[in-house]
Simulated scan of single mutants.
Amino acid sequence: MKEVLVTGAPNEPLKTTIIDSPIPTPGPNQLVIRNVVVGTNPKDWKIPVVMSGKLPPMNTGDDVAGYVHALGEGVTEFHVGDRVAAFHEMMKPHGAFAEYTLAHAHTTFHLPPQTSFEEGATIPLAAMTAAVGLYARLGLPEPYAKVHAAREAAKAGVIVYGAASAVGAFVIKLLVKADVHPILAVAGNGIGFVEGLLDKGKGDVVVDYRKGDEEVVKGLKAAAKGDVLFAYDAVSEKGSYQNICQVLSQKGGAAITLVLPGKKYDEIPSSITQSVTTVGSVHGQPDDLALLGFAWYRLFGQGLREGWFSGHPHEVVAGGLGGVVEGLNNLKDGKASAVKYLYRVADTEGVSASKI
């Protein structure tokens, strides 16, 4: 099979090499997916750049959609030929940028007939990042938790910073499904998209970060219905959490979750509980949230069937796996706004095993 290896270095464009690799063999509770569409996330370029010189070239992709190709021992929920999407275990071999990907059964979910492989490939990593942050880090109500201690506390507003990103948009979709309002969203070029997710009748607003930090803080404070206690920072840089902390209550009980690991968020006051949302937790890194992952991937599938959940806007990059380098560099250069870059694996036919 063809597989893409990614290399990066600070202040340089990323490079990819397409090689021939063996099709992986599934272990217990694993399956192999014959990929139809694969997707990219910001971590796919950040890891090669940050770890430049410390890691060999690697297949950094984790979002896949396609057909079940082979089953490992103990897998009973899926059958060969099923249409599925899956979250590959980060930093492990046999990632998404390939014709076949190895995935765990508990981070794989069925795609209903009406859901395209393109839509399915936008969901696995970003939507689960939203679920982990909302439920395991912030402790906000899940859609079926009609009686929940945090429901009343959330009525002052929940801040979602970076609302047009895939993670931010999925956060909003899950808050809306749980009827948690008002949602105090912050976005820029993707404001039009975000407005389509919100319910202004329930107090939801979107604030434009392009107007500057002072206006962001002012706008969030004006929209809040009291002491704001919850914030999901899907950006976690460029002043995002500093702005958020000026709006969150300083009286105690407020919480913020961030998405960039390895940073020291020293500017966050001690009165605000901070956490980092690590989607790898559903694979046990750093904590074990496998049960949450199992449950929510199945709920994503149900939501797609019933229509209350959907994927993210996307753009298919030409060239199949040969286009991965273009998508990664677009992400690195900040060109993506309210869009996920996808690659149709079949479009890779005829590409030689050479540097792209």
Rank of each mutant, 00 (worst) to 15 (best):
D62S: 12
K92V: 01
A127Y: 01
G53M: 14
K54C: 05
T25H: 06
H88Y: 02
A98Q: 07
F109A: 06
T108P: 08
N35V: 10
G72K: 07
H79F: 12
N29E: 15
E118K: 15
L111C: 05
P42V: 06
P57Y: 11
T115N: 10
M51Q: 14
A103L: 01
F87K: 03
Y100T: 08
P42K: 13
N29R: 09
K46Q: 14
T25M: 03
P56A: 12
L134W: 02
V37E: 05
G61W: 11
L138F: 11
A127G: 06
G66S: 09
G81N: 02
N41S: 01
V64Y: 04
V50W: 08
D62C: 12
E89R: 10
A126Y: 14
V50M: 08
I33E: 02
G53S: 14
G39Y: 00
D44R: 04
D82V: 04
T107A: 06
P26F: 12
V64F: 02
P48D: 05
A130K: 10
P48G: 03
G95V: 14
P56W: 06
N41T: 00
Y67S: 13
G39M: 08
L138C: 07
D63L: 12
E118T: 10
D63H: 07
S116A: 05
G120T: 00
H69A: 06
G53Y: 11
Q114E: 14
V68L: 11
K46R: 10
A136C: 02
P112Y: 07
A130I: 05
V64C: 00
I123H: 03
V32R: 06
G74P: 03
M91H: 13
M91L: 13
D62L: 09
N35R: 12
G39C: 14
A126M: 04
L31D: 04
A70S: 15
D63N: 02
V132W: 06
P113E: 15
E119A: 00
T25E: 10
T60I: 05
Q114A: 13
F117Q: 01
G66V: 09
R83W: 12
I47D: 12
T76I: 00
H110S: 13
L138A: 13
E73G: 04
M91T: 15
H106G: 01
I123M: 07
T115F: 09
K54E: 07
T101M: 03
G66I: 07
A65K: 10
N35I: 12
V49Y: 11
